[in-house]
Design a protein around this nucleic acid. Structure first.
Lengths: 107, 107
DNA sequence: ATATTGTATCGTAATATTGCGATATACAAA
DNA sequence: TTTGTATATCGCAATATTACGATACAATAT
């Protein structure tokens, strides 16, 4: 059919999959790394840094923002993106749980 | 164009993205969790457990195996899948690096 | 030899992702 | 008011993913 059968899996598994999907594109990892560097970044600057067009960069930013990993605030015409540290910690914990479950029971 | 511009990003970033993509589908997370449970699993059992068809399950298994996170050995007609603990550790380290870079520089 | 079982692969349909030009919107400066 | 700047969204083309029935193949059982 071509559509994921999400309902077959637990909420936690789906949450982890959704966040992993955010990290499944190198541009989005680069964006998160760069925003980590500059603390409050503009789409234009990010676009220049990762060498993708402004629309493409904006689209990636929306994907990350939708996941909760980014916050943003407008100041004049500029939109400043920052990392949502709480969500980043939540993601870290989801991964930690996954590794714990997967590691301890195997081998 | 519809094709990822991988060359714009570092090797490490692409590696993390590739492994995150493996985890970006809930079925593949469930498979890894289940294999963690049973230590040496058959496609048929996994298929039953996650309630996807045998071909679909096999396809997901190939995706995970291609990433290196799974090993397998044939015994008779049965193929036993196990987790590649080394690769799992490598993945864990890639994530740890990502979180370190992203966390320490932000906020 | 034939049937059964477990798996992988082919083929295909439905859907999702990626990328960007064109465009719309909103603010700032002249 | 007009011009320039920063961003988001639309629309589209190319490609990738997801799912499964049909099928092929190999090992075992009858």
């Amino acid at each position: 059919m071509g559509v994921s059968k999400r309902h077959l899996h637990s909420v936690q598994v789906n949450q982890l999959a959704d966040l992993a999907k955010v990290l499944s594109h190198p541009a989005r990892i680069s964006i998160l790394n760069y925003i980590g560097d500059c603390d409050g970044c503009l789409c234009k600057d990010i676009s220049g840094k990762i060498r993708l067009s402004q629309p493409t960069t904006s689209q990636h930013l929306q994907v990350i923002k939708k996941s909760g990993l980014l916050k943003s605030k407008f100041e004049g015409k500029s939109q400043y993106y920052t990392i949502n540290k709480d969500k980043l910690t939540a993601l870290k914990n989801l991964f930690a749980d996954f590794f714990e479950v997967t590691e301890q029971k195997c081998c």
